[in-house]
Design a protein around this nucleic acid. Structure first.
Lengths: 89, 89
DNA sequence: ACTCTAATTAGAAGAATTTCTAAATAAAGG
DNA sequence: CCTTTATTTAGAAATTCTTCTAATTAGAGT
């Protein structure tokens, strides 16, 4: 869905916090959920929005799902913000 | 309201387009509204969200309200995104 | 004061978001 | 194959968002 989905995904503090947690390395859905006072199904919905925006990628290891940060899409968002600032673009 | 309001404001394509229009210089509410297939009251709501996030500032000139881009808050959003990327922060 | 132009606020309808509980899926191990 | 662990999907309630039309406010000019 492109840049729209990216900014939409970035609009919720829980999702930004998930990305911040992932910047130090991949984490499982359960490990991520442990950082929030929210149920696992709720977190699952947030994971989905991040996945739709391709801000994260998932890999299954055994019964666990491991989430990875996709920095290239974060850079796309950065470029989008920069373009709002620079008169020359 | 801080960084939350900023990312929330950035989440809608119409509002990002408004910022893009303002990057070349201030524009009145009416001039901005002319770029969209939406009613003026609808645009007014979008202006308000941008104002709450302090992404824009308003100045009255006669009967017109002139909207200005506030680049320093855009830079705050940029810094917020960068911090999601860099493992050292 | 009246009128015109510019823009906002109020109120309401419809859609989307966020969150929960309960049920379902998927892989691993005995 | 049954159980356990990890996580998701389904369905529903509460809230927020987006948009409209109608009414209001604000300033300028006559």
């Amino acid at each position: 869905m492109g840049i729209n989905a990216v900014f939409e995904a970035l609009s919720h503090p829980v999702r930004r916090r998930i990305l911040a947690l992932l910047k130090n390395g991949p984490l499982s859905a359960g490990d991520l959920a442990g950082h929030f006072d929210l149920t696992k199904p709720t977190l699952s919905v947030h994971f989905n929005k991040l996945k739709e925006a391709e801000l994260v990628a998932v890999e299954r290891r055994g019964t666990s799902l491991i989430y990875h940060l996709n920095t290239s899409i974060l850079e796309e968002a950065l470029a989008g913000l920069l373009s709002l600032k620079d008169p020359e673009t």
